Amino acid sequence: MTKEPPRKGINSYHITRYLANQGGVPVGHFSVLTEMTFLLIAPLEELGYELPERLWPDISSGSMFARHLREECGIDTDRMPTFVQSFQDGRKPVQPKAYPERLLADFRSYFREVWLPTRAWAYFEEKDPTALPYLKQLLDRLAA
């Protein structure tokens, strides 16, 4: 596996999606897309894997985290604010949850301790197996 050099002046689809939508997240809140960009998408790109446009791991991890908050923490996620998230390919915008910053450490722990070890491999194995060697590198890096 050879690592491709970064492309100057060209962002990947998901980095562009993050940049286009970050400003809509309410002050004092975070989005799962932001965190997935920092914790998964950008690290995988740094290892040489660019997430295809058709993959949305932020939806998978966001759904699991919301369920965790409801079922394990008793938090009513329906009361969370939402924001408009647009797509550069013209598909219909969505309104994901914006989580209060006080839950940021909880999300990061959940992502690292639950989503990555229990869901990430199956997610990529089903949707894009070419990601698996890069995911293994990321998982090994995090375990060190």
Rank of each mutant, 00 (worst) to 15 (best):
T2P: 02
E4F: 04
P5G: 00
P6F: 12
P6R: 13
R7F: 13
S12T: 14
H14D: 04
I15P: 00
T16Y: 11
R17M: 13
A20Q: 07
N21M: 04
Q22H: 10
G24D: 07
G24M: 06
V25T: 09
P26A: 08
V27F: 02
G28K: 05
G28C: 02
G28L: 00
F30P: 05
T34M: 08
T34D: 12
M36P: 01
T37C: 00
F38V: 00
L39P: 02
L40S: 09
E46A: 15
Y49K: 10
E50M: 10
E50L: 10
L51F: 02
P52S: 09
P52F: 04
P52I: 06
E53S: 08
L55M: 15
W56K: 15
W56D: 14
D58Q: 15
S60P: 09
S61L: 12
S63I: 05
F65R: 09
F65H: 10
A66P: 01
A66M: 06
A66I: 00
L69S: 06
E72Q: 14
E72I: 01
C73V: 10
M80T: 05
F83Y: 15
V84Q: 09
S86I: 12
S86K: 15
S86P: 01
Q88S: 14
D89A: 06
D89F: 07
G90N: 13
K92Y: 10
P96H: 10
A98K: 12
A98W: 13
Y99M: 11
E101C: 06
R102P: 00
L103A: 03
A105R: 12
R108F: 10
S109E: 13
F111P: 02
E113S: 12
P117R: 08
P117K: 11
T118C: 06
A120T: 06
A122G: 07
Y123H: 13
Y123L: 03
K127P: 01
D128S: 12
T130N: 14
T130D: 15
L132C: 03
Y134N: 04
L135K: 12
K136L: 13
Q137C: 03
L138P: 03
D140S: 04
R141T: 00
A144D: 10
